[in-house]
Amino acid sequence: MIDRRIAAGAAALALAGLVAPTLPSYPLTLLTQAAIVAILAMSLDVLLGYTGLPSLGHAAYFGIAAYAVGILATETQVGFIGCLLAGVLLATAAAALFGLLAIRATGVYFLMITLALGMVVWGLAFRWVSMTKGDNGITGVPRPELGLPWNLAAPLPFFYFALVATVLAWAALGVLVRSPFGLSLKGIRESETRMRALGYNVWLHKYLSFVISGLFAGFSGVLWAWYNGFVSPVDVQLVTSVEALLMVALGGPGTLAGPALGAASIVFLKNFVSVYTKRWLLILGAVYIGVILFAPRGVLGAFRRGR
């Protein structure tokens, strides 16, 4: 079953890689966007689907990394490795700090505190104008030079770059959730008290899950800054966090391929609908409600007992 899922995912990725050269640039950029956002959705799924912690501030780590890359790449001469490390490490550090505050809370209180912490970051992005350029955002973030013959400024090489990154993240997270550590996370999701009685350090497991989730969200944010060339408070706002939750919910929490698929669906839906109608927010809102009402198993399967 699991092997079949991996095979299906690998086939989908290979197919995407094969057809990419034949695609016009617009679908290709959407595919790139889907690949990057899929990492964000998978990172949130580690927390939501595997550990059972619904974070309402996941855009914070995504955004911190994106801002780190945006600022470093436009204000300094820091290159590929430097930007990547700075973005991922800052996001991880933020998750390590926020985790200390958030992991104490459970259920609705966990939602609230992650929402609040996400807003701290949004507030800084919005108002710390000397650092973040405020509402205008940071424009003209250059794509990195890898020292390879391909120029990432072109859509096709950057798509392959993003695809490789997504495969790496998927593989790493896949190994993580199937490891003994990942299995104990599932145990905590199912019954925290039982895991505690069995002698597991529940707090530490949850905390590590929180930090790892932030790390991969940061990785996604780094790629996003390069892809978009533009970083703004939109990347850290509440709606972005909620959208990540929707992607996971749509695809089915507790599976990595599901949220990745959910991410791709939402990216394509948003972009295609906005081509045909100005009322895309209306449709997106209806999608939220429809998913909850009509696909409850994908959405709530893992949460039936949670409060």
Binding site: I292, L293, R307
Partner: peptide, 30 residues
Amino acid sequence: LFLRRLSGQTLGQVLMTVGFALIFQDLALL
């Protein structure tokens, strides 16, 4: 009509209220 069906399902409720918020935003604009 909507939230009562999701009693006790925290995440479902959050996502549903977001859905309404987006719809209200767009309707107000319309």
